[in-house]
Amino acid sequence: MKGKVLYLSSIGLLAMIGLLGLPVFSPAQGLKAQGYLLTEYVVKPYMTKEFETTTIEEKAMFADINFPYGYDAFSTEDFHYYFFTPIGKDFASLDRFNAELTEAEARLPENYETLEKRMAGAYEYYREMVVYLRPDLSYAPAESNIKPEESNYVLLELTYILPEKEKEFESYSRDWAALCQKIGFRIGYVAYRGVFGTDNPFYVSTMIARTQADTFVEEERIMKTLSPEEQAELGVAYEKAFSYFRKYETKNGRSRPDLSYTPKAK
């Protein structure tokens, strides 16, 4: 979000509409299928303090006018910052989001422009994209080993799929979620599909845990409980995934509640 209006092209809107008709069959029952504005900043390492300071100041400005759209923030070890803003799932919700942003810019204090210039000096570049949360490709464990307030570590997986392999990859992703449920993996993840502003076909997922060490402990626990046959099944699943990738990146980071914004309840 970050105070910059994103207007979707007709191609982006058509892609969004296409996703609205997707069926949602998911073990991740608590998730809501909808579009998100995902904003990524690549921050200059020596300017991280300035970037975070201005982000917190900006958050306060939006809170003062009670801007109705919140966002969740994450930062990674390579100085990337990600902001996920839920914007709805249809034409009307996209129009409302853009209208609210336009109205907000008119209500923000005069020093907001100066604040934006300070922020711009702290990052190399930023990009905005629309992604669509896919509950059917996500996984929520029946038994979690963390409480929401303990969620600190995040693993972001950015997956760029070979052309015309989306259906096969999504079928694999549903099978993978079912396998996680079968073996009782205790750490969940949320999957999104790129719609507009991304190098499509593109998918991104966020796995949240207490610490990175917890993910290693959980993986070790799972491997000890699996039979040789189940371990072989897991290995085959890993190999199959990479047959769909043209590019694959992982980023270690953490949740940033200090940079996130939750609007006041109406």
Results as ranks from 00 to 15, higher is better:
residue 2 K to N: 14
residue 3 G to A: 08
residue 3 G to N: 12
residue 11 I to Y: 13
residue 12 G to Y: 10
residue 19 L to Q: 15
residue 22 L to V: 08
residue 25 F to G: 09
residue 26 S to R: 11
residue 26 S to Y: 09
residue 27 P to E: 13
residue 27 P to K: 15
residue 28 A to F: 04
residue 28 A to G: 08
residue 29 Q to S: 15
residue 30 G to R: 14
residue 34 Q to Y: 05
residue 41 Y to N: 06
residue 41 Y to P: 02
residue 41 Y to E: 11
residue 45 P to T: 05
residue 45 P to Y: 08
residue 47 M to N: 11
residue 49 K to R: 13
residue 52 E to R: 08
residue 58 E to K: 12
residue 63 A to L: 05
residue 65 I to H: 11
residue 65 I to M: 09
residue 67 F to N: 07
residue 68 P to T: 06
residue 84 F to S: 04
residue 84 F to I: 02
residue 89 K to V: 02
residue 93 S to N: 08
residue 93 S to T: 14
residue 97 F to I: 02
residue 102 T to K: 13
residue 104 A to C: 04
residue 105 E to V: 00
residue 111 N to H: 15
residue 119 M to D: 01
residue 121 G to W: 02
residue 123 Y to E: 07
residue 125 Y to F: 12
residue 126 Y to I: 00
residue 126 Y to L: 13
residue 127 R to S: 09
residue 130 V to P: 10
residue 132 Y to I: 03
residue 133 L to G: 08
residue 136 D to C: 07
residue 136 D to N: 15
residue 137 L to I: 07
residue 137 L to H: 07
residue 139 Y to I: 05
residue 141 P to Y: 07
residue 143 E to M: 08
residue 146 I to P: 00
residue 148 P to T: 07
residue 150 E to I: 01
residue 150 E to D: 15
residue 150 E to Y: 02
residue 150 E to R: 05
residue 155 L to G: 04
residue 161 I to S: 11
residue 163 P to C: 09
residue 168 E to I: 01
residue 173 S to H: 05
residue 175 D to M: 05
residue 178 A to F: 02
residue 178 A to S: 13
residue 180 C to I: 00
residue 181 Q to P: 00
residue 182 K to M: 09
residue 183 I to N: 10
residue 186 R to A: 13
residue 186 R to N: 14
residue 187 I to Q: 07
residue 190 V to C: 04
residue 190 V to E: 15
residue 191 A to S: 14
residue 192 Y to K: 06
residue 193 R to C: 04
residue 197 G to W: 03
residue 198 T to D: 11
residue 200 N to D: 13
residue 205 S to R: 15
residue 209 A to P: 11
residue 210 R to G: 13
residue 212 Q to T: 02
residue 215 T to R: 15
residue 215 T to L: 15
residue 215 T to A: 06
residue 217 V to H: 12
residue 219 E to H: 08
residue 219 E to I: 02
residue 222 I to W: 05
residue 228 P to I: 02
residue 229 E to H: 01
residue 230 E to Y: 00
residue 232 A to S: 11
residue 234 L to P: 00
residue 234 L to W: 11
residue 235 G to E: 13
residue 237 A to L: 14
residue 237 A to P: 00
residue 237 A to I: 05
residue 238 Y to S: 06
residue 242 F to Y: 14
residue 249 E to M: 01
residue 253 G to L: 03
residue 256 R to L: 07
residue 257 P to M: 04
residue 257 P to F: 03
residue 259 L to P: 04
residue 261 Y to E: 09
residue 264 K to N: 10
residue 266 K to D: 12
